[in-house]
């Protein structure tokens, strides 16, 4: 690893800690929400927003040539809200209004908040929207890219596979899907609820270039997104193997933390663990 890359990863790790802390703090304040599936997303989103992957302009959120990020797994939005605030789309103080009446930070994302491309939270719908964006970009001969983050439980939805077929058929090589494969859905392990494996083979058979990475390793995520840039005639999917609730011992791999906010005591312990941890 080059010294430059080492420094970059050190900075990304630091940012990921800040994101995890704000994520859980806002959830604790809101009193409800989804810690598990937002903590598993952190390194993926930090790589996109701070790893010089996403081409975007927080001062001009509707810039026509920006890369699009569709968060199809809408319940992961606390992590996205934190990233958007840290990048300057809106003041960080807005994070503490999560899930309150009148706040643009709804429990699931709703378009209208700067940086949020689409409403989501009804699972399985984002990849089709991303396809539409990618087809429109091609029609307009634009060079921006479309990123779409799904969960793994989410892709039990049939619409995802309709969309996967469409992207493969149209060879959308400026589209990159990321599966946050944390292995746990609301009521238990994905493998028990309805098994999705072998996941890479499924995507490959739908015409996708498939890259499998440790979704908490910045070096692997960075190189996956770089590789995706060079893939032609195929959409790319990054299957990011992650841990639900990553960074907090009592949340990791536990389905009961899919949709429950920490109390004050739990938050305090979680923040300590995050500070002491070394992820990335």
């Amino acid at each position: 690893m080059t010294r430059e890359l080492e420094e970059k990863i050190t900075a990304l790790k630091k940012k990921a800690k800040e994101v995890r802390k704000d994520d859980l703090t806002m959830l604790a304040k809101a009193g409800s929400g989804h810690p598990g599936g937002s903590l598993s997303l952190v390194e993926i989103l930090v790589t996109l927003f701070y790893g010089e992957i996403l081409k975007h302009d927080p001062k001009n959120p509707e810039w026509a040539d920006r890369d699009r990020l569709v968060l199809s797994k809408g319940h992961g939005c606390p992590a996205l809200y934190v990233l958007l605030a840290h990048r300057g789309y809106f003041p960080r103080s807005l994070l503490w209004t999560l899930r309150q009446l009148g706040s643009p930070l709804q429990g699931h994302p709703h378009r209208g908040l700067a940086g949020i491309e689409t409403s989501s939270g009804s699972l399985g719908q984002g990849l089709s929207i991303a396809n539409g964006m990618a087809l429109a970009a091609r029609l307009d001969q634009k060079s921006h890219r479309i990123y779409c983050v799904t969960g793994d439980g989410e892709i039990q939805e049939g619409q995802i596979w309709e969309a996967a077929m469409t992207a493969g058929h149209y060879k959308l090589d400026h589209l990159c899907a990321i599966v946050d494969a944390n292995g746990i859905q609301q009521n238990g392990p994905v493998a028990q609820i309805k098994n999705l494996e072998p996941l890479p083979e499924k995507w490959r058979s739908f015409g996708w270039h498939t890259i499998e990475v440790n979704g908490h390793k910045f070096s692997e995520l960075l190189s996956a997104f770089q590789e995706a840039l060079s893939v032609k005639e195929k959409p790319t999917v990054v299957i990011a193997r992650t841990v639900k609730g990553k960074g907090v011992s009592f949340m990791e791999g536990r389905s009961e933390w899919h949709g429950k906010a920490p109390n004050a005591e739990q938050l305090e312990q979680a923040l300590k663990e995050i500070e002491a941890g070394d992820i990335g």
Binding site: T118, S128, I129, N131, G132, M133, Q159, A163, M165, T166
Partner: peptide
């Protein structure tokens, strides 16, 4: 379902 979602992406 995919068609309506794709249409949404075009509209966006």
């Amino acid at each position: 379902q995919d068609m309506l979602g794709t249409a949404a992406g075009f509209a966006l």
